[in-house]
Design a binder for these strands. Structure first.
Lengths: 212, 212
DNA sequence: TAGCAAACTGGCACTCAGTGGCACTTGGCA
DNA sequence: TGCCAAGTGCCACTGAGTGCCAGTTTGCTA
């Protein structure tokens, strides 16, 4: 998704509506007919948005498919300066912020997020496209940490490991969350947040796992 | 790259040669003219391979661009069963195996790997394509660990964190390695292996980094 | 409130990665 | 040596994605 800050103007609200319409049409269609069988042309017809504009709103078809999940990362990116101004273990700070970002998602987000997560599970190239946003987040975290902890050797590498752990933990949580039976209609953000917290809490010890 | 085990037959050797020719033509061309400006058609003309066969050998243009780096992961995947039969901390076992895989790369690999790594740095979609192979590796590690440590709660999640750390550490090491001045001609696998070892050794403590 | 400029839209032609189908070629093995 | 499977290249095609441009809409200021 390309950046269009929602500022309350008619313009930005109209764009947000078109985007939302596309997401709401696309994800159920992908789930029902298959990602590859549903073309961008078809989605644009149904949403009454030109294809040219589609590609102005989204970075591509995969970006559309991942919108609900990527919106969480994008929210975290938006809030990042404030988040990184806090004190405490970086992993905990980012984990809390990630949970906050999930809680900020609009009503009804869960259904689309479950559909989106399921696509990632069956299409590696969609999953891979999710990496682009996460990498942007990681780079911003690294840059901010490097500036804030200048003088601490290896701070940037540490920040990279923390982000990698956070992303992996989030991924594991989302996988568990979407795979529960009936999740399309019953999944809650509270469940997802709990799964994220549990997952991230175990990360440091996880690195000590041994083969017997 | 699609799987074509190199078994010593004429057939498999011919395929390997065609692939290698494509990689050796593509990476310098990408570096000189830009990834987007160099088309698959053009590369196939130069390598005297049909485009149809190109897409039989590679999973796509990005896969071609990442071949040197992905060959490392693929080697690790091939060796994985033997690797995971060892004892010790999983991160160390995998880290050692990763270093072994780098050492197994053919002579001259360094130059192409540096070019490949630089593409990933400037084209997020290429970087993202590298995730596909890493995710395949991760899944195999997780499956094997789950089977081997059945009864240990959370073993699969731990394995995921370990793989995430290994991949992040490798990534950091490669970035440092390729960014050294003159790396196209002077980079050595010994340097890269040392960087990987150092990077991975710091992973557990990295998760404890604090914001002041 | 009107006018202007910037932001946005859609139509259209086009490129290029990627693929199915099929006839032909090559290699491996009994 | 013959047969069959693996592999090849040609060709037509699809669909994601983009540049260009004229027209429309919106926001802002005088």
């Amino acid at each position: 998704m390309k950046t269009h800050p929602v500022t309350g103007t008619l313009r930005s609200r109209r764009i947000a509506r078109s985007r939302q319409r596309l997401v709401e049409i696309a994800l159920p269609a992908f789930a029902e007919h298959g990602y590859d069988a549903v073309t961008v042309d078809r989605l644009c017809d149904q949403a009454e948005v030109s294809k040219r504009s589609f590609f102005r709103y989204f970075d591509g078809k995969e970006d559309l498919a991942l919108t609900p999940l990527n919106d969480v990362w994008r929210t975290l990116i938006t809030d990042l300066d404030a988040v990184l101004a806090r004190s405490g273990p970086l992993l905990a700070v980012l984990g809390d912020a990630l949970v906050d970002a999930v809680e900020q998602m609009p009503p009804g987000w869960e259904r689309l997020a479950v559909l989106s997560a399921r696509l990632g599970g069956t299409h590696p190239e969609i999953d891979a496209a999710g990496v682009v946003v996460c990498e942007r987040l990681t780079q911003q975290v690294v840059d901010t940490i490097a500036a804030r902890l200048s003088g601490t050797s290896g701070a940037d590498l540490s920040a990279r490991f923390v982000c990698a752990a956070m992303i992996a933990g989030h991924r594991a949580a989302v996988d568990t969350w979407q795979s529960a039976p009936g999740a399309e209609t019953t999944a809650t953000r509270a469940e997802l947040c709990a799964l994220i917290r549990t997952s991230l809490a175990g990360a440091p010890a996880a690195l000590e796992i041994r083969l017997p």
